[in-house]
Write a protein that binds this DNA or RNA. Structure first.
Length: 279
DNA sequence: CTCAGTGTTCAGTG
DNA sequence: TCACTGAACACTGA
């Protein structure tokens, strides 16, 4: 699930391995799709010898702040991750892969970085929907400059939140997935937020009563905070989260309370929701 | 063999 | 210009 929590996990991992270090060696795969608008060899040359001052995240975008521009910007797409030797990627309830690939570097490695102290970090990306880019001023150039608030870094106040959704006529699912509105919310988290806020995903933002707006806001914040904490501590997601139950066959998908889960296509994505609870 | 899918982007429509 | 929809992208695993 490269939604915000897994990208944040990647950020922390990259910071652990690289922050304050100088990059001693880099190997890039020949992949014109993933290296978006920049030659892999250019990225290699840029990174080698650079010092990593910090690793930042906004929404699902991740970038290294180097000691000089340009800076590398990473997006995991649907299947990307940062890995280091001997550490398995977090497996969520959806993926039931057996075995896994214990090899190093992993299959589908797109970039392999060695730090001056011997630490290693790779970015993998099997389905090639992830992207690696170079940006002179990441925060002020697309794609970062187009993103909305990051719920973990700066949740709007209730007043600001109300202003942000005012006049939004599309369905709530689409709004939550819109990265220009809130950066980092993906399909599963959007469903979880609406489920726990007890709001029908097909409704429009401007139809919400004040208490519903507040419920939406507070769930958006708490669910992402919880998911990031779970990622960090390897504790379990709460059992009553919709998240655990949405992958059962659609006919018999039920919540922990036995309520039937419905599926509907909204904003081009499969949306799981519980009609008996969400109004 | 077929097809859905954790995400983004772009062309097309209203 | 805005807001939204659907297709495309590419590949794995069910």
């Amino acid at each position: 699930m490269p939604e915000l929590p897994e990208v944040e996990r990647g950020r922390r991992l990259a910071a652990e391995v690289l922050q304050g270090r100088t990059i001693a060696r880099v190997k890039c795969a020949e992949d014109r799709i993933v290296f978006d608008g920049v030659a892999p060899s250019t990225v290699c040359r840029r990174l080698r010898g650079a010092r990593v001052v910090a690793v930042h995240r906004w929404g699902k975008q991740l970038w290294f702040e180097l000691d000089s521009a340009p800076h590398p910007l990473f997006h995991f797409g649907m299947t990307g991750s940062f890995r280091r030797p001997g550490e398995k990627p977090l497996k969520l309830a959806s993926s039931r892969r057996k075995g896994g690939d214990p090899g190093w570097p992993p299959r589908f490695t797109k970039i392999h970085i060695w730090a001056d102290d011997g630490g290693e970090l790779v970015m993998t990306n099997s389905r090639r929907l992830g992207r690696i880019r170079l940006r002179k001023d990441p925060r002020n150039e697309p794609p970062l400059s187009d993103l909305g608030f990051d719920p973990l870094l700066g949740m709007p106040t209730p007043t600001e939140f109300r202003r942000l959704i005012a006049g939004r006529k599309g369905n709530l699912k689409g709004l939550l997935l819109d990265q220009r509105f809130a950066a980092g919310v993906g399909n599963w988290i959007a469903d979880e937020v609406l489920f726990q806020a007890a709001i029908d995903p097909r409704r429009s933002a401007d139809s919400l009563a004040p208490d519903e707006v507040n419920r939406l806001r507070s769930r958006l914040k708490s669910i992402i905070a919880k998911a990031v904490a779970v990622d960090a501590d390897k504790e379990r997601f709460p059992r009553n989260w919709l998240f655990h139950y949405r992958w059962f066959k659609q006919e018999d998908a039920r919540t922990s309370r036995g309520e039937r889960i419905q599926f509907v296509d909204l904003a081009g994505r499969t949306t799981a929701w519980v009609p008996t609870r969400q109004r």
